[in-house]
Amino acid sequence: MKMKKRKKITLFDIVVHIIAALLLLIVLYPLIIVLSSSVSEPALVATGKVVLLPKGINLEGYKAVFKNPDIMIGYANTIFYTVVGTIINLIVTVPAGYALTKNKIPGRNMFMTLFMITMYFSGGLIPTFLLVKSLGLYNTRWILLFLGAFSTYNCIICRSFFAAMPVELEEAAEIDGCNPLRTFIQIILPLSKALLGVMVLYFGVAHWNSYFSAMIYIKEDHMQPLQVFLRRILILAQTAMNIEEGGEYAQAMADREALIRYAVIVVSSAPLLIIYPFLQKYFDKGVLIGSVKG
């Protein structure tokens, strides 16, 4: 069997590789354009001269980004919300997923139903908003940390993962006098690096990229995450410029922001784009399979 001959390259192979290459091109082109523009001469970018590769190397954009107080505050806030928020997510979601694998606990199905309903039905935007206000969490950092702390979808992924683990481990620990909490922390979790990797990625990405909650619940600039400032720079200023001249002030702001526009996209997106390939082996296979089967 080992002697199997190398297969010929067929027409089928050629077609498949061409399609794959086209897909890569479609995905990569906008990313390359942004990267190229961020290190090019702003005047050449503005006149549409940068079509693929950078022209007239200029790093002023990056300098401007690191000197811009709003962006730096936003960056620090986003790191804070992502790190602390993700830790809270893990504490709330992962142990619950583990507990739900235990048939013996009374009321397990009730808890499961309680969680499942929230996937399909919710109070919606306004009742949640009024609740947050009445709890006194409006315009505080807490709300961005707590909102979405539990995710039924991710909890089900955790449950499927833990359910596939051999029970002998836990039985052995129980005989040795471990209570379930200790078993979970000292025996199960160290064996669940793949799951934790995926959970950190899912929750972390959600925190890093979210802007809507901050836009609704946070009033003061010093607590705003990066995405809110990005929205001002990338979308609001540009749209105002495109729709009408908008007066001298808008023009001056647009000029200042045109310089940092590309650089800020790179600086804000780079961390996630650098991290995810290292976690790819975890989310490519296995972890997700069980969750789809429900």
């Binding site: 619950a96 609740l131 702390a149 539990f150």
Partner: peptide, 21 residues
């Protein structure tokens, strides 16, 4: 105990707003 944070969360942030409907 492991379920407690999750249950508390959904009761406060998912079910209380449903009452608000």
């Amino acid at each position: 105990l492991m379920l407690l944070p999750a249950v508390a969360y959904v009761l406060i942030f998912c079910y209380a707003p449903m009452g608000g409907l």
